[in-house]
Design a protein around this nucleic acid. Sequence first.
DNA 1: CGTGTAAGGAATTCTGACACG
DNA 2: CGTGTAAGGAATTCTGACACG
Lengths: 108, 108
Amino acid sequence: MSEEASYKDKKVITIGVVSELTGLTERQIRYYEERKLIFPERADKGNRKYSFNDIERLIEIANKREEGVRTYDIRQEMIKKNKELDQKVRKNMLKGQINSRFGIQKDR
Amino acid sequence: MSEEASYKDKKVITIGVVSELTGLTERQIRYYEERKLIFPERADKGNRKYSFNDIERLIEIANKREEGVRTYDIRQEMIKKNKELDQKVRKNMLKGQINSRFGIQKDR
DNA sequence: CGTGTAAGGAATTCTGACACG
DNA sequence: CGTGTAAGGAATTCTGACACG
């Protein structure tokens, strides 16, 4: 599982290939970065590198744009979802702490 | 499972990134292709595109080369392994046929 | 706001070849 | 055989800007 995720998250794809894969122009892809919807890495010489995850995200973005959703609102949705995720993570961490204290007492 | 495999097999990485990831020079990578050890795809304009699978394969090749194994012999090993795989596939197909005829007779 | 485009430069990639051993 | 390198050209990518609406 963690193995597979490493492929999905590894930033290795150049903008030209991303453009082919998503159907978006390079201009659009760079603009969505400017609007903080995606976060490619940079190679040593400055060229952008994307992950498969970024590509899936761009396809989502393209769909929302077709529906007329503005980049600003797409970003707001993204922030909102991240906050929800944060909540979940915190809950699980708390649960984990509780378990480690009271739940799983192998030795005592 | 088939989802994850699509990332691993998709040819999207340029030779420069492959060089970074494997530590091999572009010259070496192109030479191993000439010796039929790897099979990148070509983009429209002719530049090579590799998959994560190719990268793992290249790392294996690099290790064998360090041990002094010649490209010819690396290729022979590869061919041998593919033949073994073929055998397995044939066996399973045969098994599948048998099952579909005699094994799983839901209705008759 | 979101996207197109022309501009100029820098970095990438390609092929075929010569070199060495 | 396996790899390095210089050569020249073609394609890629980058940035900042002007345009339109």
